[in-house]
């Protein structure tokens, strides 16, 4: 084991960047994923299945395939770049967009399941109690789906922290901009700095365990509070 502090400045910068990416991505995922999950839980017809398939694609696609298409979509010659006036590839904003798309099914599916498990009756009852559809959504549907929202947020956060392939494809490893934990660990292993790789990998393992345990405990508490 090399001497010196357990975490050097570069490692701390990487950890903070990873947490910032996961935090911003989770907020965007909840803002985008919740209405999408609501629509998927209530809509019918072929369009619903088409949209559900698109949302689920990141589960089955190799990250390199998704990363490749995102790289093209965010590259210097893409229509998106022309519209925005600047390219998103190899930027923090680009990582957020890629992470949102990559983690979308892990957030949308638990929220959608929570809305579907609720059924139509609570919304009907709220309507007879003078709630407009928007009132009913915010005061009845969202609180009832809270365990699903919580699970989705945790999964989205953890999945973003552990993301590697997509990040490498669209972000590379620019220190302070796109070099997140998973990429840093890969670099340490490649350059045979196993002690540093151990510190970061062990930290991620412990964090993942703690996050999933916390999720299960909070879910159990939420369910008990309602029984």
């Amino acid at each position: 084991m090399a001497e010196g502090p357990l975490l050097d400045a570069a490692m701390i910068e990487t950890i903070l960047l990873t947490l910032k990416l996961a935090g911003v991505t989770t907020v965007v995922l909840l803002l985008v994923g919740t209405p999408l999950a609501w629509w998927l839980s209530r809509a019918g017809g072929l369009w619903k299945e088409v949209v559900a398939t698109i949302v689920a694609l990141p589960i089955v696609l190799p990250p390199t395939v998704l990363g490749f298409y995102l790289l093209i979509a965010m590259g210097p010659n893409s229509p998106l770049t022309a519209i925005l006036g600047r390219k998103l590839s190899f930027t923090f904003e680009g990582l957020v967009v890629g992470s949102v798309i990559y983690s979308l099914p892990f957030v949308v599916n638990p929220i959608r399941n929570a809305f579907e498990a609720m059924g139509p009756r609570p919304m009907e009852v709220a309507a007879t109690l003078r709630a407009s559809p928007l009132d009913a959504f915010f005061t009845v549907a969202l609180p009832l789906a809270l365990p699903g929202l919580f699970t989705g947020a945790i999964l989205g956060f953890a999945h973003t922290v552990g993301e590697f392939g997509v990040i490498l494809m669209i972000g590379g490893g620019i220190p302070g901009e796109t070099k997140v934990l998973s990429v840093t660990i890969f670099d340490y292993v490649e350059t045979l700095q196993w002690d540093k790789a151990h510190v970061l990998a062990g930290g991620m393992l412990a964090m993942s365990f703690a996050v999933i345990l916390a999720m299960l405990l909070v879910e159990r508490r939420l369910n008990r509070a309602r029984q």
Binding site: R121, P122, E124, A127, T128, L129, L146, R226
Partner: peptide
């Protein structure tokens, strides 16, 4: 008229008190 503008009280067999 939508249900929330009818001024009607409705109580069903399954009650559906909001558990939260």
């Amino acid at each position: 008229l939508p249900p929330h503008r009818r001024g009607i009280g409705y109580m069903s067999q399954d009650l559906h008190l909001f558990p939260h």
